[in-house]
Design a protein around this nucleic acid. Sequence first.
RNA 1: GGCCAGGUAGCUCAGUCGGUAGAGCGUUCGCCUGAAAAGUGAAAGGUCACCGGUUCGAUCCCGGUCCUGGCCA
Length: 329
Amino acid sequence: MGHDGRRASGWAALRHERHNGGVLPVLVVNGVTASGKTAAAVEVAQHLGADGVPAEVVNADSMLVYRGMDIGTAKPTLAERGGVPHHLIDILEVTQTASVAAFQRLARAAIADCRNRGVVPIVAGGSALYMRAILDEFEFPGTDPAVRGRLEADLAELGPAVLHARLAELAPQAAAGILPGNGRRIVRALEVIELTGSFSPVLPQAVYAIEDVLQFGLELDRTTMDARIEQRVDRMWQQGFVDEVRGLIPCGLRRGKTASRALGYRQILEYLDGSCTEDEARQATVSGTRRFARKQRGWFRRDPRITWLPAGEAAERIRDAFRLALDPS
RNA sequence: GGCCAGGUAGCUCAGUCGGUAGAGCGUUCGCCUGAAAAGUGAAAGGUCACCGGUUCGAUCCCGGUCCUGGCCA
């Protein structure tokens, strides 16, 4: 009757029932950068596999999508993926611009595809906005390159204050929610107003758009986190991070709007431009990554639906939670 | 031991021709809708090394003490 006593064939049978009768749960592994969430996701998949329940990983990380960006994104190698299929890795060239809305569609499709095949999707990622866009009711107003381009040209020419004033005339409440110096958000607000007639600068409530989501987070104290980040950046340098970046320049890395701004890549590009030393680039990567991790932590902390687990035992605990979801008795 | 430079925010430093001080980074707390590893706002932090003198008033000028770095012996 205890969960440990149930043999793998028992779990497999329950999973089969669940697949035919409804939907399989989605497991979500959140965590700041360098917390070990990628490895934990693979471990969970292997635990479930041992129970006779097939599972696959759906990447929800905005930078693992780029082909060729391997070292600096800590992309799991084939060996590290341990035979577990991964979705949404290496799907874009560095010149292509990633977008939340496109990722939302792809990730939801990947999750649905796993469930249709009777496979448990394990979503792993570090960007809370991406995760919310995937899991929650979250609709993005459209975009238009021509409109966007024109507004961006205006921004460059006139400055954010002028555009903010324009926004204040069209939509006072939207303008009130955006600071006058934040050009990027002002441009987007003006674009959405031009396309749809209105814009709300407020994030929607967190309501799942997908059934049976179990969200977990890897807990890590800040001292450990900072130390791991520094070690990881050092390791990336030893593995040839600078050469990886150099090799991506002919592929158009500098033109990539999102790829060229990835942590480490941006700093190494600056070093290769001669605007700083290699050591300064490495240190800037460490401090930038730390700042990023603090931001991630802030986002995740605000989502009460996440169950936090100590990093060391997360995989087992997630497996147990999954078993309980299959067999509540 | 002598000479020189310096001791100002957690760190690196700026500054005050004498009216109790700033920047960058860091820290903390926020915001975020087709670029989120991005973009952005704010706050907290300092008996200006110590003791004395001059002065209405000293972080600043003067004397001494301690400490750090460099040069000379």
